[in-house]
C-alpha cells in the first residue's frame, strides 16, 4: 500500500466514490432497506404483547426495549455488509486496489450506517411514544442512538468481515458481536434513564463518544485484517 499517493485518485475521492456506490446499490434494493426497520418496529411491539401493556411499566423499560431492538436490527442488516461484494468478486478488487483497505471499509461502514442506523434513529421517537417514554428522555434517546448506532455498525463490521466467506455467517456473526455490544447498550440506556429522571447526561454522551472515537480508529484496521483473512480462504 505504499503507492497509494501516486495513484490517480486521492483518498477523499476514493472515500466518496465507495460511499456513493454503496448507497446507490442499497437504494436499488429497497426491500433490504426497509426490512431492518420493520424488524425494529416488530421487536418493540412484542414487548408490550409479551410482558405487559401497562403504561407505567412500559415507560420504565422503554429505553431498554428501543435500544435492544435497535441493536438486534443493526445485527440483522450486518450480514449483508460485505456479502454481495464477496459474492460478485468486487471485494477482491477492493483488496487489490492501491488505496488502503481500511479507508474503503470506513466508507462502506459509513454507507451502512446511513441506510440502517440513521433511519433507526429517526424512527426511534415513534417507538418511544408507543412505549410511553417520558417526554424529557426523548431527546436523550435520539442523541444516544445517533452516537451509538455508528459504533454498532463499526463493531458489527468486524464480525461481518470475519464471517463473510462462511455459509452460515448470519448466526455466527450474532455470537461474535453481541458481547462486544454490551458497553454501548449499557451507556446508551443509562443516558436515557438518567434523562428520564432529570439528571444530566453529558457524562454518558462523553463516554459514548469516546467509544465511538476508539471504534473509528481501531475497527477499520481489524475489519481490513479480517477481510484479508476471509478472502484468502
Amino acid at each position: 500500500m505504499t503507492n497509494s499517493t501516486t495513484s490517480d485518485l486521492g483518498l477523499g475521492a476514493v472515500f466518496w466514490i465507495t460511499l456513493k456506490r454503496d448507497l446507490l446499490l442499497a437504494f436499488r434494493r429497497r426491500n433490504d432497506l426497509v426490512s431492518p426497520l420493520v424488524f425494529f418496529l416488530m421487536v418493540a411491539t412484542l414487548f408490550p404483547l409479551g410482558v405487559s401493556p401497562e403504561p407505567k411499566f412500559l415507560s420504565e423499560v422503554a429505553a431498554g426495549v428501543v435500544w435492544v431492538a435497535a441493536l438486534l436490527s443493526t445485527l440483522l442488516s450486518m450480514d449483508g455488509l460485505f456479502r454481495t461484494d464477496f459474492d460478485d468478486g468486487s471485494l477482491e478488487q477492493m483488496l487489490l486496489s492501491p488505496q488502503p483497505l481500511a479507508l474503503l471499509v470506513v466508507a462502506k461502514i459509513c454507507a451502512h450506517w446511513m441506510i440502517s442506523g440513521l433511519p433507526l434513529t429517526i424512527m426511534s421517537p415513534l417507538l418511544a411514544v408507543m412505549l410511553f417514554l417520558p417526554d424529557g428522555a426523548m431527546g436523550a434517546l435520539v442523541v444516544t442512538l445517533l452516537i451509538g448506532t455508528p459504533t454498532l455498525s463499526l463493531i458489527g463490521a468486524i464480525g461481518a468481515g470475519l464471517t463473510v466467506g462462511l455459509r452460515k455467517g448470519g448466526v455466527l456473526i450474532t455470537l461474535l458481536v453481541l458481547p462486544l455490544y454490551i458497553p454501548v447498550l449499557i451507556f446508551g440506556t443509562g443516558a436515557v434513564q438518567a434523562a428520564a429522571s432529570g439528571l444530566p447526561i453529558n457524562g454518558y454522551l462523553a463516554i459514548l463518544g469516546a467509544i465511538l472515537a476508539l471504534g473509528v480508529v481501531l475497527a477499520p484496521i481489524a475489519v481490513a485484517a479480517a477481510l484479508r483473512i476471509s478472502v484468502s480462504n
Binding site: 468486524i158 458481547p179 451507556f187
Partner: peptide, 18 residues
C-alpha cells in the same frame, strides 16, 4: 486471533461498563 484481540481491547471497557 483477530477476534480475540478485538475482545482484549473490549474487556476493560466491558468490565468498567458492567
Amino acid at each position: 486471533a483477530v477476534l480475540s484481540l478485538v475482545g482484549l481491547v473490549n474487556i476493560p471497557i466491558i468490565k468498567y461498563s458492567v
